[in-house]
Amino acid sequence: MEAEHLPAIEANPSLTLKAVYSRSQQSAEALAAASKDPASVAVYFDTPTVAGKALDDLLRRDDVAAVDVALPILHQPGVVEKALRAGKHVLSEKPVAGDIESARELIAWHEGLQVGDGAAGSRPLWGVAENWRYMESMRYAAQRVGEIGGGLVTFRLVKNGSVASDNKYFNTEWRKTPGYQGGFLLDGGVHFVAGLRFLLAAAGQDIKQVVGFTALLDEKLIPVDTIQAVAATQGGKLGTITISFGTEFKSDTKVEIVTTHGVVSWSPTEVKTVARKGDGSNETVEEKKKFYYSSGVTEEVSAFAKAIEAGKLDALQTPTEALRDLEILQRLLESGAGGATVKSTGA
């Protein structure tokens, strides 16, 4: 669990924070200290070794029904599996795994998992947290795509920015020396792919093929920090994808969906729509709606809490949905490594 998840958990009245776990005692205690009532939160850790304080001890607790797993990309799947084996519902951080093959194996294993007998033997829920699908501005943009209607014409995803040396996310050893594909492009880029897919879905489309180039603009962000690509949907519509964490003097985040009836442009704090009036004329009307920035984390945790109560996972949190995000990102990376070879995403 990351510190930013604590307010989201504690903001949901149906959830009670019982315990926290981290690999080190220091980080676990720091996490507990950030909670509203640290004295009521038990702490578990791997190092130093203390009897009764390991992750397995936490997972044996009968009063813990669900866990929120936000660990380094390569460590996370093993903990997800361990928690599910213990019969706990799991909300795990994106990406679903470090690569497509690992994700598919974990999903297949979970789909075949049974715990206990009878009604209690139902498979524990496993959701993958992708907060961009829960951002208020993103939800509104998808609504507007549906409302203006028409067939998809083209689309555009643009994310430019930089990662400073003192950035809190960069200053974790597993990000400085990533043992997984793509570095920040996997860790953060999967958000942008998810956002694009969410708005494309509102137009009835998903990405089928990609072809692009990758580059390293900032030497500290190994192995690559930039993708420039063209993508095609299953309906044969073309769009562009730009994701860069190495552009120091340019910063923007935008997704545009263009249909035969208009265009919806999304940014985290504004949604702009230009569409025909609908009166038979060729005149258009423009609408802008502003939003306070919201990460969507509270909303995604709330959706998981409701899923536990209902016994059914929110469709936006299914591991297979998260797998699609990962598939597209990995195919973009593979295309760039191959000199802009066309890659199918399996849509």
Score class of each variant (00 low, 15 high):
residue 3 A to Q: 03
residue 7 P to G: 05
residue 12 N to Q: 11
residue 13 P to E: 15
residue 15 L to C: 02
residue 23 R to Y: 14
residue 23 R to D: 06
residue 30 A to N: 14
residue 30 A to H: 10
residue 31 L to W: 01
residue 34 A to M: 07
residue 35 S to W: 13
residue 44 Y to C: 05
residue 45 F to M: 03
residue 50 V to A: 08
residue 50 V to Y: 03
residue 56 D to R: 05
residue 58 L to N: 00
residue 58 L to T: 04
residue 61 R to F: 06
residue 62 D to E: 13
residue 66 A to S: 12
residue 71 L to S: 11
residue 72 P to D: 03
residue 79 V to H: 03
residue 81 E to M: 14
residue 88 K to N: 07
residue 90 V to A: 14
residue 93 E to N: 02
residue 93 E to K: 05
residue 94 K to H: 11
residue 95 P to Y: 11
residue 97 A to N: 13
residue 98 G to T: 07
residue 100 I to L: 04
residue 102 S to N: 09
residue 103 A to C: 13
residue 107 I to G: 00
residue 112 G to P: 08
residue 113 L to E: 04
residue 117 D to F: 15
residue 120 A to S: 09
residue 122 S to Y: 01
residue 125 L to N: 04
residue 125 L to T: 05
residue 125 L to M: 06
residue 126 W to L: 05
residue 127 G to I: 14
residue 128 V to L: 03
residue 131 N to D: 07
residue 135 M to S: 08
residue 141 A to R: 01
residue 152 L to S: 07
residue 152 L to R: 01
residue 154 T to Y: 07
residue 164 A to G: 14
residue 166 D to S: 08
residue 171 N to E: 10
residue 178 P to H: 02
residue 181 Q to I: 14
residue 184 F to N: 08
residue 185 L to F: 15
residue 186 L to N: 12
residue 191 H to T: 09
residue 191 H to P: 10
residue 192 F to A: 07
residue 192 F to M: 09
residue 195 G to I: 09
residue 205 Q to M: 02
residue 210 V to K: 05
residue 210 V to W: 00
residue 211 V to D: 00
residue 214 T to C: 06
residue 216 L to N: 04
residue 219 E to K: 13
residue 220 K to G: 06
residue 220 K to A: 11
residue 221 L to S: 02
residue 236 G to H: 05
residue 238 L to W: 13
residue 242 T to Q: 11
residue 244 S to P: 07
residue 249 F to G: 03
residue 253 T to S: 10
residue 256 E to V: 00
residue 257 I to V: 12
residue 259 T to G: 06
residue 265 S to G: 03
residue 266 W to H: 01
residue 266 W to R: 01
residue 270 E to R: 12
residue 271 V to G: 02
residue 272 K to I: 12
residue 273 T to C: 06
residue 276 R to I: 13
residue 285 V to Y: 02
residue 286 E to S: 14
residue 289 K to P: 00
residue 291 F to K: 09
residue 291 F to H: 05
residue 293 Y to N: 02
residue 301 V to C: 10
residue 302 S to H: 08
residue 303 A to W: 07
residue 304 F to D: 07
residue 304 F to M: 09
residue 305 A to L: 08
residue 306 K to D: 12
residue 307 A to W: 13
residue 314 D to S: 15
residue 320 T to K: 05
residue 321 E to P: 02
residue 325 D to E: 11
residue 325 D to L: 03
residue 332 L to M: 05
residue 334 E to N: 08
residue 338 G to H: 10
residue 341 T to W: 08
residue 342 V to T: 13
residue 342 V to H: 04
residue 343 K to G: 07
